[in-house]
C-alpha cells in the first residue's frame, strides 16, 4: 500500500537521500521524497513496516505527522 508521510525538518537533497535510505532499510519502497513540500511517499507491505519507517525517520531527528 502507498502511504504519504508529512515530514518536518527536511532542508536539502541530503535529507531526501537519508530518509529514502533509512526507509528502504526498513523494507519500504520509496516512491518519492521531497524536501520542499516535506513529503515522503513510500510503498509498504504492511502496517508494521510503516511503523518501522516512522520510527527510523524520527530516530534521524525528523518529525513525522
Amino acid at each position: 500500500m502507498r502511504k504519504t508521510l508529512a515530514v518536518k525538518g527536511m532542508h536539502c537533497t541530503s535529507c531526501e537521500v537519508l530518509l529514502s535510505e533509512v526507509s528502504e532499510e526498513c523494507g519500504a519502497k520509496v516512491i518519492s521524497a521531497n524536501h520542499r513540500v516535506g513529503q515522503l511517499v513510500v510503498e509498504v507491505p504492511s502496517e508494521d513496516v510503516l511503523k518501522k519507517v516512522r520510527l527510523a525517520v524520527q530516530r534521524e531527528g525528523y518529525q513525522v505527522e
Binding site: 541530503s14 534521524e60 531527528g61
Partner: peptide
C-alpha cells in the same frame, strides 16, 4: 548544509 548531509 545540515546535519543530515554529514550522516549521508
Amino acid at each position: 548544509s545540515c546535519e543530515a548531509c554529514a550522516k549521508v
